[in-house]
Write a protein that binds this DNA or RNA. Structure first.
Lengths: 170, 170
DNA sequence: ATATGTGCAAATCTTTTGCAAATTC
DNA sequence: GAATTTGCAAAAGATTTGCACATAT
């Protein structure tokens, strides 16, 4: 099993028709925050910009590193506090990615369609899967249980198609 | 928001038809371990027995406390190592319960049907929801993506029916 | 005899917090 | 000038590890 400081986010094109992202749209965090009259400081703008633009899921430490490249004076606690603010407002989702690399959390801008994250135990890659079935299940759960779902997280761990092909016997 | 050292697991009967557990069966950990020729020491038997018999999801610290009531000499690391062993063998599932009470993890014996855990941000209760749709979604994801799913976790956070009734305006 | 499990204590890793200074409204 | 945000340094919480000793096969 590989150790992966940097998990790979496979894109739709990389994995052919393994993916299925119907209309997955991310909102603009800045716009949302402005609409909600949240004070956007320089540091927040920087941190949020990094989350928003990142092609992969970032953990707090990586986010701090990236932020420091632009503003070396930025503090770890500011990063955590900004993450906390975005979480509380439901603008980002927190992921564990099956703890494939430690206990840290990863973040991504909330999309209009929730999706499944799959972490490969062999290569450490992270794949995403979006489908209408997930939205339907969400709706079914809410309707049947009377539970008002504010956040939902579907994560899987296993072996990706590529790795299965490489080493056929699991 | 309540602080909850001990989250409540609502049962099917408590929540009326909010639940739907088709054939959710837990395997016997002892039997599984024996079949796999895993050495079962006294301490492991004790720890595993507690996990198996617990009506609610336990975190490592609680598990340690309970184990110490029967064997005060048992060590924290033994508990963690036993949990790790069970996890690696896919006999227990690890839950975060939306980090409703800190960053700890909770454990439960793997069932033959995966289910959704819902954590209420107001009362801290944990509800479970099992449905054939989830199994179907799992199957769809595996089939479409070619990903061999070994573990899967569906967790939601929000407000349970009871709490919604109590304080209507979210 | 050899492999495996355990206790202990310390280390590690991630995240949170109290408080004084700085910034913004 | 009142409220909010930040840096700093320390604390807290959860989990892991190295190693010597004990136990099981």
């Amino acid at each position: 099993m590989k150790t992966l400081s940097n998990a790979i986010v496979a894109t739709e094109s990389q994995l052919g028709r393994a993916f299925n992202h119907p209309e997955v749209t991310r909102s603009s965090l800045m716009r949302e925050l402005t609409a909600r009259r949240v004070r956007i400081t320089e540091q927040r703008r920087l941190i949020i910009g990094i989350i928003q633009d990142s092609p992969r899921h970032l953990d707090a430490a990586t986010l701090l590193d990236l932020a420091r490249k632009k503003d070396p004076g930025i503090d770890r606690s500011t990063v955590y506090r900004t993450i906390g603010m975005l979480k509380r407002r439901g603008l980002i989702d927190e992921l564990d990615l099956m703890h494939i690399d430690g206990e840290k959390h990863y973040y991504e801008v909330k999309t209009n369609h929730d999706h499944c994250h799959m972490a490969c135990f062999k290569c450490g890659g992270i794949m995403e899967y979006t489908s209408a079935s997930f939205e339907k299940l969400k709706e079914e759960i809410a309707r049947t249980s009377g539970f008002d779902i504010r956040v939902i997280r579907l994560e899987a761990g296993g072996v990706c198609r590529k790795c299965r092909a490489t080493s056929p016997a699991p």
